[in-house]
């Protein structure tokens, strides 16, 4: 559209670029700013102050926002258990498939990306009876929800770990270690896991972010987590709900920023971008991109 001198570069001119990014960025900032503005309002007399923020944090665990803080605690427990489920069940299986059953890779990819096609709201219809059995076996502790959350984070976690797994030569590494006399446990713990640190870390962070933002399953199975508590609080005290929502969004933002940084030093861009791009992972060639 502009001169021919730059014709062999598909990128936009600086003006076009900043015009588009500026307008979209500003529009997208409005709701976030509005959340901030909303929490600083001083009630009927108008004006702004930090009283609501102070009230939330001064009460501590015994204050009137105890419910939300307990729910936050529940969500943290869920995040930890979900990451544990992922580490114990998904990671060894992926390594095993990579090493021993390469012909199962496509099947594994299909399974791990399946939760994208099955909406959480559909899953929950079938999870209700499953969870009534689980409640009898393990009690109705909130942590049991992590089994369902493990499924929800599967596409994200798979994507992050697979990107890392494809980048290293697992077979050569483990054969080298085996020929030097290492047992399989040593190979796993001292050779493979350190090489997969980056992918595992990304997968864990993403899982934490997903679990902290999860609402559908907890709400319909009548469990209390951060999001369900926020919805309940918002009915009586919308200001507090917005404060916590704002904090959670900012926290998730920095968590993802950290993933980008974790992935950055080496093969710069693909890893972080791909790892939060679970849907793009449906691409058949996605695993090795």
């Amino acid at each position: 559209m502009s001169g021919q001198a730059k014709a062999f570069r598909p990128e936009p001119g600086a003006l076009t670029r900043w015009l588009i990014l500026g307008i979209v960025g500003l529009v997208f900032l409005v709701p976030i700013v509005a959340m901030g503005e909303f929490t600083l309002r001083r009630g009927l007399e108008g004006g702004y102050d930090f009283s609501r923020w102070i009230a939330v944090f001064s009460g501590g665990l015994t204050g009137e926002y105890k419910g939300v803080l307990t729910a936050l605690g529940n969500s943290v427990v869920l995040a930890i258990v979900t990451v544990a489920v992922m580490l114990v069940i998904l990671v060894p299986t992926m390594i095993l498939v990579q090493l021993r059953f390469p012909y199962l890779r496509r099947a594994m990819e299909f399974l791990c990306l399946l939760p994208i096609t099955i909406p959480a709201i559909v899953l929950v219809v079938g999870l209700a009876p499953v969870y009534s059995v689980i409640a009898k076996m393990f009690g109705s502790g909130v942590w049991t929800l992590s089994f369902a959350y493990g499924i929800i984070v599967l596409p994200y976690a798979y994507r992050a770990i697979q990107a890392n797994l494809s980048a290293i030569d697992v077979v050569t590494l483990s054969e080298a270690a085996r020929s030097l006399g290492a047992g399989w446990l040593t190979v796993l713990v001292r050779v493979l896991l350190p090489n997969l640190r980056r992918g595992i870390l990304s997968a864990s962070f993403i899982s934490v972010a997903v679990v902290l933002g999860e609402y559908t399953i907890a709400a319909l199975l009548n469990r209390v987590n951060l999001q369900t508590a926020l919805v309940i609080v918002s009915k009586s005290d919308p200001f507090v709900a917005v404060i916590f929502a704002l904090l959670a969004l900012v926290f998730a933002f920095f968590l993802l920023l950290a993933i980008g940084r974790v992935g950055a030093p080496r093969r710069s861009r693909r890893e972080p971008a791909a790892s939060i791009t679970a849907p793009a992972a449906v691409t058949p060639t996605g695993a090795s991109s």
Partner: peptide, 10 residues
């Protein structure tokens, strides 16, 4: 991916 409920508040 993580907004959900919080976007409604926004």
């Amino acid at each position: 991916q993580f907004g959900g409920v919080m976007l409604a508040f926004a």
